[in-house]
Structure formats: structure tokens, C-alpha cells
Nucleic acid binder design. Structure first.
Length: 772
DNA sequence: GTTGATAATCTTTTT
DNA sequence: GATTATCAAC
């Protein structure tokens, strides 16, 4: 036995070394489930003589895939073991390209993301003259996605809808579904659901193809099995049907993707599907302190629809959870910043701290607070790099080079930069493409050639565009993605337009495009499929977490609780524990949804190795300046009260959550420790927060706290309107206005930098140098 | 027909 | 507080 068997406990060893056949690993949070899977792969190769390329491992994210592959390599002493480790979507995309002939799609099909899907549905609604407000595209897309997960085609869906006559909504959906699918096919494009569904169909309709993959993959392993949907379930079932060497790992308490079709029955009924399945439960937690684990167990125990299990640990008791009830969300963010500063004072690395929230929008105030108090951070998710306008534009151009039928992409860029192409010209183009059954790009070529009724400049611009893409297309099979990108940037005039704009915003976009070029170049030399095709596929299927760099840069990480799945940190800050925020008001409808929110909370709590900081606010300030009251989240009441220390506004411990007095105070909606008062500026927040940070630090005897805030200033240090100043990064500029604050360091100075634009700066941070 | 500017309208979670 | 619908001018 290789020495790494010593690193496993008995249960883990049982899972890792189990003989062939169906195996279910039910594992709690922090019990090392991905680790068990990784070691099992290594074991299969090392001990059982399975060839690496005969193993298929499916993970939840590309990042997890990369890590697992690397780890298997380390265990075996190999650089790049040929194990196929990949996500469902990447796996399916690869299979579909390989088997394109059987699927009825060109192998250069595009992969449409949510935005592309919405675009298609919007067009369909416009054509049907249905009001997009009364019938929002996302509602149709959700219904279509559900249907696709059940492997329903539009015709079958329509038949069922018609059978239930009177269901007007289903009939409408059926119409949209049919047009939507027809458009996708016309555009030679698939959405995320098609990637899976088309492989399932391929396997079910071509037994010979399936048999070839069954022979190829002697072992199939799936991580995060509780988050698979029905189509994925059928895919796995088909692949494993012949040899039944299937290993799945999951935890029903961590199922948080039901909203996109994940079905926990897949894991709960595994033993029904495979009566000879061997089941291994991993219940020892290696990650968290006793306190963290007790809190999480107590919370998730309030769910009815679950398999009871109780995690335990040999780790130390640890510190109590800390809960701060802020007056409003600004106060909450400020307190968070000061707690972080306090932790840093104690010698904790910011890189070991994470801030988790329910919705991406909540990151904004946190970012403002962290910036204001000078704490470095990294946001994961939200606006993905690939979601930025300029990036999407260039991706659209690149997609067109590969796939001339991609109408969504052409529509996006046909008038960027301006070519004098508006809605009327576009409508004619679509008409021509449909009448002549031409790919949209060819239709454009013909229209520019014949040019009937087009304004001269428009016609010339379209002709140029057509030539540019045509040339690149001719070379697309062998060209490097970074070269294609560079050629497009130049010859479409995209770069020139941005350069001429000469604003800071345009400069930022150019930077982003440079970054895209860097990524494309990296892909060209390092990737398995270095082609343009491979690059675009990668771009469509990476998630934001995949690109999170875990280099030892010392900064706080901000992300949603969903994104945090599978990760762990020493210190976890959970903000926004308010009813309607978390649990989110949109989940109030059914018990099922509330239980999913509770599982999400469970996932969030169990990310923590050592400390948990919770906070909520008593009111929220809407954007019209109106304040609405908030109630503390029900999840707070579901934690063992004696484990939760309540921190007052002055930073002192006010007692435990269970004390009757605190409970009354909270029920009355009052912030604890001091009378509730809205915090309108970071100045106010700083005053309250500083006290909190002092108290935390003093309580731990860690010496005097040092504010990470702005440099001290007097009113005389402030420049006046019209004065010239120098900024370390942006150079010389002229002061437009100064908004004074009680502390001059907090004042906001608006400065115009010639050629760069107008920038608002906080006096204490910007360290502006007066020139006059 | 196209462009630029103003007005209205929301805000879950994601491969 | 950012994206999208609508409208008036070019």
C-alpha cells in the first residue's frame, strides 16, 4: 500500500479502496469528500491497474477539476495523468464536437449563455407582439430549461400543453419554446441545457456510440451529486449501465441548486437505482471547531426534508460566534471593516477571511467600506470578466469567425463601432437570411454586394466587415486565438474607437482587452485544444470561481454563499442576516424554498474553520432615501443561543443571544447597545466602528489599535475649486468642487484630469499635491 | 433610418 | 445605481 493510505481514517479508507460496483459516499461538510474521490482515483490507478484514460471524473467547477487532476498527479508522481476530470458541461461539449456528425450540429456550434438566451426570447416576443413586461423572458427560459432537463422536445412539450387545454401559460411557453429552439438550430448554437440533453439523446439514440464510451470509461465518478439534475442523472446512468462502476459523492444538506433543476432525489434514491450499492458515510469533520459545527448542526436540524445526520469533530471547542446588529447596512459594512482591521491587528491574514452574502448587490456597500478603510479585497462573481461589454463584443466577433450562422453575435456587433446600421437594416438582413436560408453572415455579404437601397457608407462598412471576417475565417482552423483577436481589434476599428474616446473608462476597457489578449495567448500555448474553437468553449464554460487566484495575496475575498460552496476559510463573515434578505423574500412561497435557503445558510456556516461573524441591520435605506425596517433572520434564532455572543454598538459583548432582555430588545427592532440612529456617512460609521474595533482588540490584549483609515488632515490642507493639483496616478488636474465633511480627511474632492475624465476622490486617501 | 438623450424600471442564487 | 424603453432631433 502506498504511504498515503496512512493519511485516511477507516471510513475514508473504505470509500477509497472499495472494489468495483456502485458506491455512494454520503459525506458531511468538511469531511473531505472531494479528497476521498481524489484518493479513490489514485487508488484505482495505483493499486487496481486501471489506466488513467479509462477514468471519468465529473466535478462541479472547472477549478475543482483542475485541483483534483493536479492532486491525483501528485499522489501518483505524474505530471499530467490522463484522467478525464471535467465538469458536466465541458465533458458534454467535448463529446458533442467529437460526435458532431451524429448530432446534427456543425462542430463549431456556439454555446449561448443567459444573456444570449434572453436576446433570442426578446426577439421572439417582439415578433409575436407579446409585451415583454407581461411575459418576462426569464420566466419562459426557466420553463424551457425545466423541459429540457426532462429531455422534452418542443413538439412533445406543445402536445402536453395542448392536452391540458385551458393552460394558456403552457401554450404560450410552447410557442416560445418552438421558435427558440428553431432559432438556436438556425444559429448553430446550443444553450447550457442542450449540451447535456443532446449527449443524453446521442447515447439513447445511438447505442453503438454509447457502447464506445462505456468501453472507454471503465470507472465513472461524480462529485457534488446532490446538485445534479435529471438530464445529468440520465447521462451518468447511461455511461455506467454496462460496467456499473459508479462512485458518487454528496451531501443532501448542501443541495443549493434546486432552482436550476438540481434534484436531491438523485442522491437520496441512489440505493433504489442500484440495490447492490455500497454506502459509506463520512461524518467526522476535519475543518471546523466544535462551536461552528454545533451551530451548523442546530440550524440544519430545523429542516424536515432531510436524512438525519450528525457531524462530529475532534477539533477544539473554539470561539463563540459573534453577532452584531447594526442600525443600517452602512453601519453593518463599517463594523465589518473594523472587525477585519481588528483581526489583522491580531495577526490574522486577510487572505484567510471571507465575506459572504446572499445577493451580489450586497457587495457594493462592503466594497465601499473596505475601500474607505484601506483594506484590500477581491470580489468573486457578480459582474464576471467575460460579462463586460468590450469583452463580450470581441467574443462575439470571434464567435462569428468560427460560426457564420451566429445571428445573436452578429446583431451584437454589427453596429459596434458605429457603421450606420440600425433596426431597419437589421430587420432586412434577418429577412434575407430566412428567405434564402443563408447563414446570417453570408446574407450580410450578399446584401453588401448587391447593396440595393443601402446608404453608401453603410454599404461600404458592411462590405469591409464582411471581408475582414471572411479572411479570418479562411484561416480559423490553424490561427491562434490571440492572433485572431488582435486582427479583429485592428481591422474592425474597435481599438481605434476606444483610443479616440480618450476617457478613463475607455482606457479601462482597453486594459480589459489587453487582459483578454493575454488569456488568449496563454490558451494558445497551454491548452489541450489551443484552437480558437477551444478558446471560445473555455470562455463559455468557465465560472468566476475558476479564475479566483488563490495565490498568497493578502486580501479579503467577497462572494455569494453559492459561490463559496466547496471552499473553506479561517474567518467567515456572514452579512445581511435579515428576513427578506436572507432568507430571501422570493423564497417565502413554499417550505421547500425556505429549506433550500436554510441549507444555503448551512453551507455558509460550514465554510468556517475557526471563527464566524454574523450581522444584520434594523433597517435598510432604499435608493429613494426611504428607510424600511428589517427583522433579524429566522436563522439567527435557530442557532444555539449560548454559542452566540452579541456585540453591542460600542463593541462590548452585550451578552448571549439567549438572554431574555436581548430577545425583547431585538423583537422591538432596536439596535443593541445604543439607540438606533441612521448612519448616513462613513464618518458616522467610523465613529461607531472604531469603538467596536477597539473593544475587540483590547479584549484580546493585543495592544492599541491603529486605524487603517485616512491620513489626518486639517481644513487648510484641502484645495479649493479651480486649484491645480497632482495625483500620484492620474497626474495633474483641476479641482471642480469640494464637499466638506466634519473630518476634513473624509471630504470628497472632484477633480477633472485632462484627457482622463472627472474623478471623485476622498481627501485623506488621495494625498493630492497642491500645485498653485 | 440612425443617433443621442432623457425617462422608467427593477434587483436571487448560476453552469 | 445601472440597464433598458421611449422620444425627439439629425
Amino acid at each position: 500500500m502506498p504511504e498515503w493510505h496512512d493519511e485516511l481514517n477507516d471510513r475514508q479508507l473504505e470509500a477509497v479502496t472499495y472494489k468495483d460496483g456502485p458506491l455512494l459516499i454520503l459525506a458531511g461538510a468538511g469531511s473531505g469528500k472531494t479528497r476521498a474521490l481524489t484518493y479513490r482515483i489514485a487508488h484505482l490507478i495505483y493499486e487496481r491497474g486501471v489506466a488513467p484514460y479509462q477514468i471519468l471524473a465529473i466535478t462541479f467547477t472547472n477549478k475543482a477539476a483542475a485541483e483534483m487532476k493536479e492532486r491525483v498527479g501528485q499522489l501518483l508522481g505524474l505530471d499530467a495523468p490522463e484522467v478525464w476530470v471535467s465538469t458536466f458541461h465541458s465533458t458534454c461539449a467535448r463529446i458533442l464536437r467529437r460526435e458532431a456528425a451524429h448530432v446534427g450540429y456543425g462542430r463549431d456550434f456556439a454555446i449561448y449563455d443567459t444573456a444570449d438566451q434572453r436576446e433570442l426570447v426578446r426577439d421572439i416576443l417582439a415578433e409575436l407582439r407579446w409585451d415583454a413586461k407581461k411575459f418576462p423572458p426569464p420566466a419562459f427560459l426557466a420553463a424551457i430549461s425545466t423541459a429540457k432537463n426532462e429531455l422534452l422536445r418542443p413538439e412533445e412539450f406543445a402536445r402536453r400543453a395542448a392536452a391540458r387545454s385551458g393552460d394558456a401559460w403552457a401554450e404560450r411557453t410552447a410557442r416560445v419554446f418552438r421558435s427558440y429552439q428553431r432559432q438556436l438550430e438556425r444559429n448553430n448554437a446550443m444553450d447550457f441545457d442542450d449540451l447535456i440533453a443532446n449527449v443524453v439523446r446521442l447515447f439513447e439514440e445511438h447505442p453503438d456510440v454509447l457502447a464506445a464510451y462505456q468501453r472507454r470509461f471503465l470507472h465513472v465518478l461524480v462529485d457534488e451529486y446532490q446538485d445534479t439534475n435529471h438530464a445529468q442523472y440520465r447521462l451518468v446512468r447511461a455511461l455506467a449501465a454496462a460496467h456499473r462502476n459508479i462512485t458518487v459523492v454528496g451531501d443532501d444538506d448542501q443541495s443549493i441548486y434546486a432552482f436550476r433543476g438540481a434534484d436531491t432525489r438523485n442522491i437520496l434514491e441512489f440505493e433504489r437505482d442500484y440495490p447492490d450499492a455500497h454506502v459509506v458515510k463520512l461524518e467526522q469533520n476535519y475543518r471546523s471547531t466544535v462551536t461552528v459545527l454545533q451551530a451548523a448542526n442546530s440550524l440544519v436540524g430545523h429542516n424536515d426534508m432531510r436524512k438525519p445526520k450528525e457531524l462530529w469533530t475532534e477539533n477544539e471547542q473554539g470561539e463563540p460566534l459573534r453577532y452584531y446588529q447594526a442600525t443600517d447596512q452602512r453601519d453593518e459594512a463599517a463594523h465589518l471593516a473594523y472587525s477585519l482591521a481588528g483581526l489583522r491587528q491580531q495577526g490574522e491574514a486577510l487572505g484567510d477571511c471571507v465575506v459572504l452574502y446572499r445577493t451580489n448587490a450586497q457587495s457594493r456597500l462592503v466594497e465601499e467600506a473596505l475601500t474607505h478603510f484601506g483594506l484590500p479585497y477581491q470580489v468573486v462573481g457578480g459582474l464576471r470578466f467575460y460579462d463586460r461589454k468590450e469583452i463580450k463584443d470581441l467574443i462575439a466577433y470571434m464567435r462569428l469567425v468560427l460560426n457564420p450562422a451566429d445571428a445573436v453575435s452578429l446583431h451584437r456587433v454589427i453596429n459596434v463601432p458605429r457603421r450606420g446600421v440600425g433596426p431597419a437594416t437589421w430587420a432586412r438582413l434577418v429577412q434575407l437570411s430566412e428567405d434564402e436560408a443563408l447563414p446570417i453572415l453570408d446574407a450580410m455579404g450578399r446584401m453588401a454586394q448587391e447593396g440595393t437601397g443601402l446608404p453608401g457608407p453603410t454599404r461600404q462598412a458592411l462590405r469591409d466587415l464582411s471581408a475582414v471576417i471572411g479572411e479570418l475565417r479562411a484561416a480559423s482552423e490553424t490561427a491562434r486565438p490571440d492572433d485572431v483577436l488582435e486582427a479583429l481589434l485592428e481591422s474592425t476599428g474597435y481599438r481605434r474607437e476606444l483610443e479616440q474616446e480618450n476617457t478613463m473608462e475607455a482606457a479601462g476597457r482597453l486594459d480589459n482587452l489587453d487582459e483578454l489578449a493575454r488569456l488568449a495567448g496563454e490558451h494558445a500555448v497551454g491548452a489541450e485544444d489551443p484552437s480558437l474553437r477551444g478558446f471560445l468553449e473555455q470562455v463559455a464554460l468557465v465560472s468566476d470561481i475558476d479564475s479566483m487566484d488563490d495565490e498568497a495575496t493578502d486580501r479579503v475575498v467577497l462572494m455569494t454563499m453559492h459561490t463559496a460552496k466547496g471552499l473553506e476559510f479561517d474567518n467567515v463573515f456572514l452579512i445581511g442576516l435579515d428576513e427578506t434578505v436572507f432568507p430571501h423574500e422570493r423564497s417565502f412561497g413554499t417550505k421547500r424554498e425556505i429549506e433550500e435557503e436554510r441549507r444555503l445558510c448551512y453551507v455558509a456556516l460550514t465554510r468556517a474553520r475557526r471563527r464566524l461573524f454574523l450581522s444584520s441591520a434594523t433597517m435598510r435605506i432604499g435608493f429613494r432615501g426611504e428607510s424600511e425596517p428589517l427583522m433579524p433572520s429566522r436563522f439567527l434564532a435557530e442557532l444555539p443561543p449560548h454559542l452566540v455572543q452579541v456585540i453591542g454598538r460600542g463593541g462590548r459583548a452585550a451578552g448571549h443571544l439567549g438572554s431574555a432582555q436581548l430577545a425583547r430588545q431585538m423583537a422591538a427592532g432596536g439596535a443593541i447597545g445604543r439607540r438606533a440612529r441612521p448612519v448616513v456617512s462613513w464618518q458616522d460609521a467610523a465613529a461607531a466602528g472604531q469603538m467596536a474595533a477597539d473593544a475587540v482588540t483590547v479584549a484580546r490584549g493585543a495592544g492599541a489599535p491603529r486605524a487603517t483609515g485616512p491620513a489626518a488632515m486639517t481644513e487648510q490642507d484641502l484645495p479649493g475649486p479651480g486649484e491645480k493639483v497632482r495625483h500620484s496616478k492620474w497626474g495633474e488636474g483641476t479641482v471642480v468642487s469640494v464637499a466638506k465633511r466634519p473630518d476634513p480627511a473624509d471630504s470628497e474632492i472632484t477633480v477633472a484630469f485632462p484627457g482622463l475624465g472627472i474623478k471623485r476622490l476622498v481627501a485623506g486617501f488621495a494625498r493630492l499635491e497642491k500645485l498653485s
